[in-house]
Design a protein around this nucleic acid. Structure first.
Lengths: 356, 356
DNA sequence: AGGTCGTTTGCATTCGAATGCAAAAATGCT
DNA sequence: AGCATTTTTGCATTCGAATGCAAACGACCT
């Protein structure tokens, strides 16, 4: 018999079709009934590579179009044990600096048939909550661009949810990471500063618990030592424009002999610092002091700033993150991997020969 | 009998518990078995307001904790017909200007027990695809901060999916909207410009199909007319910094008599314009030319720019959008509503008495 | 026509939680 | 204690699609 509308057929007599019962969306059963085939057939039509004859596919697809049928991803997820959802964990800060990253990642995920489930994480407690929520939604993977503790990571690992860290990683722990290592570029820049006769450097770093900040400052320290440039002080900011401005004041307070160059761990603080130098302290950048920073965000190249900065290839990094998560969703046994990209120096107008 | 592990009880004899079969997550049945209760009881424990005794709740919760049980939101969604997912449609542009909006919306949604499913929309064709995907995921609602055609909106409406437009709306169509109407502030600013003896204004607008741009330029035109300031030209940009810079060149080309004030439909172009004026044309802002813009994004207040701009209260707008979508998810018959916020003038240093 | 092999199709079951209904337990009242 | 009433609990079914298995079909060959 062609029509078994539901398991228990309520009325076997009527074969007339209600196109779309007001308020209820069409299911595969509705399509099957209209096309006069089984529900399995409908299901198979929407699964690429399934065994279906051309004739049947056409019949089903016509019925599907008529009823505006689209398979229910929720029901599919339940039976296949694959939600096709990927959790994206972002903190306010990151999304502020790299809006493009989010957009790019979403786009790329969609191209791979995955959806981005966005989670806002500000504190470590947030992360706790968010990880449970992601687990409830059966996400197939996590891209983490926010803070995550080792315990939290272990939880995800135990639950067999692959995690890709974006621009951070857990040390002493095998994990999958997209990262930018600008140490070569730092060395290049410092070398250049040496030839420009710089002698004293100040450093503006980010929050203590931030890994990117720690790594970058380590690189700066190392290269300064190598080329014999003295580090006169180090002050801490929170990555924001305002904190860059006050960092400069702090530097000015701590050091009697003005540094010849200031390194900022990110562009935003560098911009705050530069503006403060020019409009409050009345220093000329780069004549009185040079500024170098990290990130290469769009506005660092605005004519008012033209920072000399070390860019991260975030487009390629986003791509890599998505590729890595999809690979691991397909094959959960995939081994861990670190993809480390080089930075690139954007030569701007913010460095010059040291003032004598 | 206490233990019926599945519908067809395979072994009624054994009561010993496998804590967590490797690789399989605990289900409500597992918890029920461990606690020695029915699956329904477990389900009720996780539903606020359900009829459950204190004693039972405790027993179940202990078992749940032991098994690290969290209800499966996918399965729940299937039976309740509520996914608790809200689609957020963003275009690259918007997310670039208001990264905070996304973050804020996600946070607020989470507070209301909803999750943000992010979709990247660049073209109208993207919107088509995205709407189908959202439909597949049974989203309970849509917040649209990107382009959407009338037909696309009608599709969603027919499917009973509530839509909240963020900073845009469909005219001649009842719809639910969060919007900013800065006409009062435009008038105030123009009035002030009049007292500063400005006579000639140029206008930098955005893409033709962009509603916000059209509305804002309409307001500017109206106020200029009211106060008798001549509009000497109008050039088109694409909201980007670069296009603001080239817009200024275009203005300079088109008009022999330099305008006394330039209106830019958004901050980003205003910044491009300002930089171009200062560093390429060698004009002094605000002495030679004043600049006024819209948005009030963070960097418009950086010391290098200090734009006089008309801010949108995006924090409150994000909140309102979330409130409105949750209301409509709870009660789909809720009538349409427009929430219009006022703008706020941020008095910056980019305007001055007109050059004579 | 009959037989073999490969392809299509349908049947029945499954995923995990929610819920209407009825049975059971707890409570209140005389 | 006995009965009425309320609260708790369990049973059985449901949501919508996917899939292993077996039956039906078709193509091809002798």
């Amino acid at each position: 018999m062609a029509n078994s509308p539901r398991k228990n057929k309520p009325s076997k007599s009527d074969g007339n079709v209600v196109p779309l019962i007001k308020g209820r969306r069409a299911t595969s059963y509705d399509v099957a009934r209209l096309a006069g085939v089984s529900q399995s057939a409908v299901s198979r039509c929407f699964k690429p590579g399934a065994s279906i004859s051309e004739k049947m596919r056409e019949r089903v697809m016509n019925a599907a179009k008529e009823l505006e049928y689209q398979p229910n991803a929720i029901a599919r997820g339940l039976i296949t044990q694959r939600s096709n959802l990927v959790a994206i964990l972002v903190s306010g800060r990151l999304s502020l600096y790299y809006p493009e990253v989010l957009f790019k990642i979403t786009e790329e995920l969609a191209a791979a048939g995955l959806q981005a489930l966005l989670f806002a994480v500000e504190t470590e407690d947030d992360a706790e909550v968010v990880i449970e929520q992601a687990w409830q939604y059966q996400v197939d993977g996590v891209i983490s661009a926010s803070h995550m503790s080792l315990a939290q990571y272990k939880t995800l690992e135990k639950r067999d949810i692959p995690v890709v860290f974006f621009n951070r990683y857990l040390s002493d722990q095998p994990n999958t990471v997209v990262y930018c290592d600008p140490s070569e570029q730092v060395r290049d820049v410092v070398k250049q500063l040496k030839t420009l006769e710089h002698q004293r450097a100040a450093l503006i770093v980010g929050p203590q618990d931030n890994m990117v900040s720690r790594e970058r400052s380590r690189m700066v320290d190392k290269s300064l030592a190598e080329f014999g440039i003295e580090k006169v002080c180090e002050v801490r900011g929170d990555f924001s424009y305002e904190s860059g401005a006050s960092a400069l004041q702090e530097i000015n307070r701590q050091v009697e002999d003005r540094p010849t160059v200031i390194f900022s761990i990110n562009d935003m603080m560098a911009m705050g610092c530069m503006d403060e130098a020019r409009s409050v302290l009345g220093w000329n950048v780069p004549k009185d002091v040079s500024i170098v920073s990290f990130d290469g965000i769009g506005m660092s190249q605005f004519a008012s700033y033209e920072l000399t900065t070390i860019r991260q290839p975030i487009g390629r990094m986003s791509e890599a993150a998505v590729r890595m998560i999809t690979e691991r969703v397909e094959r959960p046994d995939q081994s861990h991997e670190k993809r480390v990209f080089e930075g690139a120096v954007i030569p701007g107008g913010s460095i010059a020969r040291a003032a004598s």
